[in-house]
């Protein structure tokens, strides 16, 4: 019993908020590309915010519900439907046993998150449910979801009793019931097709030529088709070091903008390696990682510089907003 995958979609994986504590062993963090959307999907279904959910990429899967579930879909709008009726994002939805969830045309964003009340009945690997494709651990057998997979669910539980009562009262012939409320849009992530991404200078920023230092902030970089959960390969004006230098490998992280010798930058994403040896010209701020995670290959981004102080302030503000959202959601859900 649980969710049966009729069609897997382009890349559907199980992710949580990441695998920490093993980077010193070369084990990558993984986790949702858009952590804010994942956390909200969980809260809207009465889960702990770091519970595992499905990360669905651009072309969504087809999922058969083998039992009643309370779900929530957040992040990118990939036109989710049941019986050709559109589902709304960012709210709890009661889905009846026997329904088939499908996705259509991507409207805005790249990655959508599907959480189920109670979470999945899976084993953690090294403290996390996140799928680590290269090492073949976490998620469902360490792989992306395949046709025929059956993801066992723990099932609807009391952590969502208020919202379940609310949805049960609604009379409908449909195979699903959506909550009539959603969190204040002002507090939800705002995605753009070609966003401005805030970043701080990277550790090797000063090693770049004056032109490169100006180019990184003043030009649009295209997110090329060679972009995935490991990193986004960008295309734009080439960036160069003042003088060729062999760097000593050191830690890199989610949002590190590194520049290989050919001069086109790469932004490291959720499945980044733990260490790298390319010069790091910039580092995307944590608060803008969700926005970056939703950029569709082919679109453009522009970097704008902020200070470390501002970056940390923006992170604290984002966490504060999430805490407020959490409290307002829990009143309605629990």
């Amino acid at each position: 019993m649980g969710l049966k995958i009729l069609k897997p979609g382009l890349l559907t994986t199980i992710q949580d908020t990441g695998r920490y504590g093993f980077q010193k062993d070369g084990v990558i963090v993984s986790g949702a590309m858009d952590r804010v959307a994942l956390r909200l999907a969980n809260l809207l279904t009465g889960n702990q915010e770091d519970e595992a959910a499905l990360e669905i990429t651009l072309k969504g899967p087809e999922i058969f519900f083998q039992e009643d579930q309370l779900i929530s879909i957040t992040g990118a709008d990939l036109s989710p439907t049941i019986d050709n009726k559109k589902l709304k994002l960012w709210r709890p939805i009661f889905v009846k046993k026997g329904s088939v969830l499908k996705f259509g045309t991507p409207k805005l964003g790249c990655r959508t998150y599907l959480a189920v009340c109670g979470g999945f009945q899976l084993q953690k690997a090294l403290g996390s449910y996140s799928t680590y494709l290269r090492a073949g651990i976490g998620g469902m057998h360490g792989k992306a979801l395949q046709e025929g997979d059956n993801i066992p669910c723990k099932g609807i539980n009391v952590t969502a009793s208020s919202v379940l009562d609310e949805l049960n009262l609604k009379q409908t012939a449909d195979n699903f019931v959506q909550a009539s409320w959603a969190p204040d849009p002002a507090y939800l992530p705002s995605y753009e097709k070609d966003p401005v991404i805030r970043a701080v200078k990277g550790p090797e920023y000063e090693l770049f030529t004056a032109t490169s230092k100006s180019n990184i902030w003043n030009n649009i970089f295209q997110v090329t088709q060679q972009s995935d959960r490991m990193g986004y390969s960008l295309a734009g004006l080439a960036l160069a070091l003042e003088e060729a230098k062999e760097l000593v490998s050191s830690a890199v992280t989610f949002g590190t903008v590194q520049v290989p010798p050919q001069g086109q930058p790469i932004i490291l994403m959720a499945d980044h390696q733990t260490t790298g040896g390319y010069p790091r010209i910039a580092q995307v701020i944590t608060a803008d990682l969700p926005k970056l995670a939703q950029v569709v290959p082919g679109r453009g981004i522009r970097f704008t510089e902020v200070s470390i102080d501002e970056a940390q302030q923006l992170y604290l503000e984002q966490e504060h907003q999430l805490l407020q959202l959490k409290q307002s959601i829990q009143i309605k859900v629990k």
């Binding site: 920490y20 504590g21 093993f22 980077q23 010193k24 000593v248 490998s249 050191s250 830690a251 992280t253 733990t274 260490t275 940390q312 992170y315 604290l316 966490e319």
Partner: peptide
Amino acid sequence: IEQVPAFTTVTIYYNPA
């Protein structure tokens, strides 16, 4: 959160909050 020792550096991850 965790630390990553490398050739010449130790990088320490932390939660600013």
